Computed example of a mutant assay.
Amino acid sequence: MEKVKQSIKEFFGKIEKLTKVQRLSICIITLFVIIGGFSYFSYWPKSKRIKAYRSECKQLEAKLVKAKKNAADIDSFREKIARKKVQFKIVMQALPEQKEIPSLISSISRSGLDAGLEFLLFKPQAEKSQGFYAEIPVSIKVTGTYHNVAVFFDKVSRLSRIVNIENIKMSSGKSSRQSAITLNTSCKAVTYRFIDTKGKKKPKKKK
């Protein structure tokens, strides 16, 4: 301890011998060393971290704004989904099942007879798969007046199931002074049925 005290006294004794300019220079140099050390070892590393945190904070704020916007729109999305589900159910109700196809085809034929048409051809064709539904076309040729044909198309459009009339072609038929002009009309009536892909089971492979 005595050696340490002696060293300190000698150090301060040397400082006392220095001029004011030398003392001021030592103070300034010491101050610069302290400030430089603080800046290099403490301030700059923390400043870099602060910049990184600020950048991350801005990114999080942008994500938060986007999340709030999505949360505000979620109710409208749910309403749209609910409406689409209702529309899908209505459309599915208009698509007949496989067991209803024969009675539906009979309804088309009966609509023509009730309208006063004479059938020359009524031929159901092979169905065409279109993914989740299948088209079932029926080739039709009838003879009758224009009014009879219009009534037939109207009756078909009023059926509970979807039936579209396509490829309508008309040509003049028999006519006389006593009776109205008859037309030979050919067309294709297309109905649809839903294909239940979930209900299908894959055939088991034989060993």
Rank of each mutant, 00 (worst) to 15 (best):
E2S: 12
I74F: 07
M1P: 10
T19G: 08
I74L: 11
R110L: 06
S129I: 08
N167D: 11
I35H: 00
C27G: 13
E127I: 00
A71N: 11
L113Q: 04
Q59M: 10
Q125C: 08
S7K: 06
K58L: 09
K20P: 07
L95T: 03
F153W: 01
I162C: 12
I34R: 01
T30K: 01
E97T: 06
L18W: 14
T197L: 12
E118P: 10
S39L: 05
L24E: 09
D73E: 11
I105M: 04
L117R: 03
K200P: 00
P203E: 13
S103E: 02
L121Q: 13
G173H: 02
S76I: 12
I26Q: 00
I26M: 02
K63V: 06
V151Q: 14
Q93G: 14
E118R: 14
K17P: 05
N70K: 01
K51M: 07
I108P: 08
F38Q: 05
L95G: 02
S103N: 08
I101N: 07
E100C: 05
I8D: 09
T191E: 01
G37R: 05
K201R: 14
L24T: 13
I34A: 04
E79L: 12
S42V: 11
P96M: 09
M170F: 08
A52D: 02
R158K: 10
Q6D: 10
F41E: 06
F153H: 03
K169D: 15
A134M: 08
V138L: 14
K5V: 10
V190Y: 01
A189P: 02
V138A: 06
G13C: 02
K46G: 07
V138C: 08
I105Y: 07
N148V: 08
F152G: 00
K84C: 01
L183D: 03
A52Q: 06
F88L: 13
F77M: 10
K20L: 04
I28M: 10
R193T: 07
N70L: 11
T143K: 12
E97D: 09
N184E: 10
Y146V: 03
C27E: 13
I168T: 15
S103W: 11
F152Q: 05
L95A: 03
E16W: 09
A72H: 06
F122K: 01
V151H: 01
K80A: 04
C27D: 04
I50S: 15
S103V: 10
N148R: 03
G173W: 01
I50D: 00
K206G: 10
I136K: 04
Q87M: 07
R161T: 09
E166K: 15
S186F: 08
T197I: 14
M170P: 01
L31A: 15
K169L: 04
E166G: 14
E56C: 01
L60R: 14
T143G: 09
K128S: 14
L183K: 02
D154A: 11
I74H: 05
L18F: 08
F11E: 13
F122V: 03
E135A: 15
D196P: 00
F194I: 10
E10V: 11
Q130S: 11
A115P: 08
A189E: 05
R23G: 12
E135R: 09
I8C: 07
W44G: 07
I28D: 02
M92D: 14
S172Q: 14
A62T: 05
C57G: 12
I8S: 05
V33F: 05
S106T: 14
F119E: 01
